[in-house]
Nucleic acid binder design. Structure first.
Lengths: 113, 113
DNA sequence: TGCCATAGTATACTTGATGTAACTAAGGAG
DNA sequence: CTCCTTAGTTACATCAAGTATACTATGGCA
């Protein structure tokens, strides 16, 4: 995607590039409340996501330094995911979106009637 | 898209549903700084977007009550777009994303070296 | 009469993101 | 010897999003 159309708005879009994606916010929300989660623990907390997609989203978040992946060389394998210090800087945005979203759903329901 | 996977995170995702989309933020950013813009003015300010896509994104934002569309029955036709009062409530989120995005780009460039 | 502008539609196409299902390695339990 | 687990991978199918291009109505201008 080419978001660099002009100087100003690409800054917003660069944030959007990181957090958009069907499951990323969901993943980040879980990792925000629970500091270390294994692959299967995330799977269980996110009904509907598949292994392939979870893997992909985690890898992308890792590449962007939002989350960190720690491998414990055990059998069966253990891999833990946690937010990085940098990822924590997204917290205010996530919280604002959480509040706005709550209000928005409320409002949407009101408009339905 | 089915974002209603569980109670908490769908609130964040419902915000994302509104503002994600390749050009929506760009559109909102222009409408935030300039209160009333016509279709072609938006086209000119957003290089790369096509008529079909601009139309579609505007309609979606209008449906979500983020922007308002005013038709002036003139020849040639004149249609103006402006943020609604409700759309204005997105401003803090857009501004946070703007700041985070600025810092992120800065950081990305630093990590390149 | 022909050309311009505005704000779109219509149609066909490409791409990217997501989903489905089966398969893998490695060692432990029974 | 077979099944179980974890954290994936691989091949394939699908679906939404975005792109490209041509077309429309209306009246003003020359």
């Amino acid at each position: 995607m080419d978001r660099s159309t002009s100087a100003d708005e690409c800054l917003v879009s660069s944030t959007l590039d990181i957090i958009s994606g069907k499951w990323k916010m969901v993943i980040l929300f879980h990792l925000m409340s629970e500091p270390n989660l294994r692959f299967t623990e995330l799977m269980r907390r996110i009904p509907g996501i598949t292994q392939r997609v979870l893997t992909k989203q985690l890898r992308e978040l890792e590449q962007d330094d939002i989350i960190a992946r720690t491998i414990y060389p055990e059998i069966p394998p253990r891999v833990e995911y946690a937010m990085t210090e940098y990822g924590q800087t997204l917290r205010p945005i996530l919280e604002m979106m959480h509040h706005w979203g709550a209000n928005h759903l409320h409002r949407s329901r009101a408009r339905m009637e």
